[in-house]
Design a protein around this nucleic acid. Structure first.
Lengths: 209, 209
DNA sequence: CTAGCGCTCATCCTTTTGGCTGACCCGTTC
DNA sequence: GAACGGGTCAGCCAAAAGGATGAGCGCTAG
């Protein structure tokens, strides 16, 4: 990459409005240009385009973190650095994206200057995190990650579906007492004291759903 | 309004990228133009701009439905028709917006053609609902109208946040008994028999969140 | 004006949930 | 082999939630 050829950006976002916005913002910069934009991350993978940065949404239409899997695939293939641009700043979204190998994580409410600066950084493979995201990560690091065990998650998911302890016990082939114990541990870890609060907290932390 | 002067659009959205996108999309149309764009709905109220349509986000930074209050205010003042453009398609968001007097409800993942068509319709004070939103409303209407009353929704939202009956009662300035009565009615309507199940059902039916 | 609905509240009773304590089994780790 | 964490279970007690019923108030639609 050299200074006189513009940065080539490829993007994928399922919102036409966002694609148009990024297109306009990026092409307005003298030192970067959009070489392609897609509605899904898969199309980026299927294309053989050469880019300096890939700008990717994290959550596509179905609400799943489809962008993460594609990020991992791009990284695995030794592709260009991937910069995530998304609406949500939940811990688990951020962590999922960074674990997948994203070079940066931006929020859609970022100022345009932040955005273009991040693209430049990302192209040079310098980490580019939005200020709010950085704060988030610091807070998380200080607070210590809340990790539920696999079994606890199975219990909590069923509780979130509205099942009673009795019903959860039946579904998991254990006793009521066991479900209650798991739940007690869950309450402890999430610092709550009721099943509904646990579900709310877990949802907030994106531990479930 | 006549055919040879372009439609004047004013917009408010807290995402710079979205503003740029809408700007690009609308100005690319021969028959419409953006006369102003703001980061908050309040700025629209404070300005004395003349517009044929106001394009408004529903949820601003704080996650609250700030756009609804401003929609109501614009309608009250006899201002131009308000077209909501948002990310979320939950029943409660849709209903809140329409109750506030919005002429239409669009989703940010709409195709550009849908969007421009809706703007034209809205300017002519013709209701303009995104296809998905229409489906949603039809489904609701056919599905036996599981319509919770405003108060019931307020209760259920707080329950979904993990509050106890006591806490909900305090927040709403009513007695525990009242909260329990509302909850009983909610259980009845949603055909469930516990708060967690009610939250799960309501979420599934997109009554909340 | 009466019927209906939404909102409010109360009482009594049953079931569920949550808090606490202690225990056993089984892997992994030190 | 001891310590540890995850998973399993039990019993007891207190608190919260849920079911049933009745009742008053205000508004609106027929």
């Amino acid at each position: 990459m050299n200074d006189h050829s513009p940065l080539r950006v490829v993007m994928a976002d399922d919102h036409p409005v966002v694609r148009a916005g990024l297109h306009a913002l990026i092409d307005a910069q003298p030192n970067m240009t959009v070489v392609a934009s897609f509605a899904t991350a898969e199309e980026v993978l299927d294309s053989d385009l050469i880019a300096d940065v890939i700008l990717l949404d994290l959550r596509f239409g179905d609400g799943q973190l489809g962008g993460a899997a594609d990020t991992a695939e791009i990284v695995k293939r030794g592709g260009p650095p991937v910069l995530i641009l998304t609406t949500y700043d939940t811990d688990s979204d951020i962590v999922t994206a960074m674990e997948a190998g994203a070079i940066g994580y931006l929020l859609k409410d970022s100022a345009t200057a932040e955005l273009t600066a991040a693209i430049v950084d990302a192209a040079a493979r310098k980490p580019a995190l939005a200020p709010r995201v950085q704060q988030q990560l610091v807070r998380r690091a200080l607070a210590g990650a809340v990790a539920l065990s696999p079994r606890e998650l199975e219990v909590l998911r069923r509780v979130a579906e509205g099942l009673s302890n009795e019903e959860v016990a039946q579904q998991l082939f254990v006793s009521r007492a066991t479900v209650k114990t798991h739940l007690a541990h869950i309450f402890d870890k999430l610092q709550v004291d009721s099943r509904t609060a646990a579900v709310a907290a877990a949802r907030k932390e994106r531990l479930i759903d």
